[in-house]
Write a protein that binds this DNA or RNA. Structure first.
Lengths: 232, 232
DNA sequence: TTGATCCTTCGGCCGCTGCCGAACGATTGA
DNA sequence: TCAATCGTTCGGCAGCGGCCGAAGGATCAA
């Protein structure tokens, strides 16, 4: 009865209050950091770390390192489905969880910032989304992007130095970088840096002093609309 | 976060190997006795008893006493659905579980017998099914049956003493009795006894000596076909 | 390089809970 | 009524597992 054992193991993983809290938070479909999950569960970081690695081991979660942060998300929609079924049995429906409050903090930083040397935040996501929607960019594996032929032309048109990016030695060309405020991947790597360069050189964006925060100029706003088809 | 607690509690109930074994067995949708579940789980009766009462308490199972046996079944389809989702996460599909072997034992007893003073086994179920399908009988609550007007006429026609059954003092008129071999309710109570009486009086069935086993006669087989519309 | 932040591993404590033996009601069949 | 069967409660034991403090690696900002 290998299936019975597997059943009880999966259920047991979900059956701890701390882990259940984490899973509940992750039901929003986004990725969360270990410390955030620890806070939610009401346990210390080291305890949370143990829980998280066990859930990764049990194929409930997927982890992804991002700088000194580690983001965790549900491993599959199957997991989300199972949790929802359990909630149905529990008889109470999942609370919508008011996140509005959290979004008030640091709105500028969340709007646009540099992530190392490329754009992040809502603007970074908007750029990435626009490129993928237009067919210029498509995910390659879980870590990279592929720049299509039309993407190559598009970059040329708006003045992104693609050739320079390709020639950047050991560096990854186009990388998927998990956005910590939007919790979705944006474009990084050499191409991401080249795109950010273009934003700064053409006066579409400017760095705020002593901060990672980036301000989108009126010119940039118009460019986002005209060249990327995104309203921001 | 009342929902989180409830989630972990439900999952924890399913997260024990012994309980998971029981739940797996109960996934066939039928009711099983406590001892059968104990055997399946590989624990002693008293351990199983504890598990079962906890699962009843947690609304995972429903229990029903039947003589000195106690039958347990999944409390709802929601529970079955949740278990199935967990199995999907576990990645292995539920084994069909070869039950064919078990059905070979005591085929006569399973085919037809008396349960106290009424018919049980496949014949008892067939009679009950035929009456409900024809609209003569319908469940009333979870414990009783209601005999409809057409049912009353039908009983009159085949010679069941309904009036006598109604007059039987303190006794329940038409009761749902869980069939231990078919695991589904058949008709018992005064009406069930009266129906069985008819079967014996009209030569449709005869008791085997020193046994609860009942043999359906050729006459009875024909009656089942003609009057009940059931092939047996 | 230094300090700060994020996360992990290690070690030990403690409480929960699953397990069984024993004993006891309840029901059934003879 | 008596014996057998089914199921339960009780008590005690043992082990798993969740928790934290301490310490250390990795990464980032200055």
């Amino acid at each position: 009865m290998i299936t019975v054992n597997a059943l009880s193991e999966v259920a047991a993983l979900m059956g701890d209050p701390a882990r259940a809290s984490m899973l509940s938070l992750l039901m929003d479909g986004r990725a969360h950091t270990a410390s955030e999950l620890a806070l939610t569960a009401g346990v210390t970081a080291q305890t949370a770390s143990g829980h998280l690695s066990r859930m990764v081991e049990g194929n409930l979660l997927a982890a992804r390192a991002q700088g000194r942060n580690r983001f965790y998300r549900l491993a599959s929609s199957d997991v989300a489905h199972a949790i929802e079924s359990l909630m149905a049995v529990a008889g109470s429906r999942a609370a919508p969880a008011s996140k509005a409050a959290a979004w008030r903090r640091d709105p500028d930083l969340r709007y646009c910032r540099t992530c190392y040397d490329h754009l992040a935040g809502q603007v970074g996501i908007a750029v990435t989304d626009a490129l993928t929607k237009a067919g210029h960019l498509s995910p390659k594996g879980t870590q990279d992007w592929e720049l299509t032929q039309t993407g190559e032309l598009f970059c040329q048109r708006i003045g992104v130095d693609v050739a320079g990016a390709r020639a950047s030695g050991t560096r990854h060309f186009a990388r998927q970088c998990l956005d910590w405020s939007e919790r979705r991947p944006h474009i990084s790597g050499a191409l991401g840096a080249a795109i950010a360069d273009t934003f700064f050189k053409r006066g579409w964006a400017e760095r705020l002093r002593r901060s990672r925060t980036v301000r989108l100029t009126d010119l940039g706003r118009r460019a986002m609309h005209r060249d990327f088809g995104a309203a921001l």
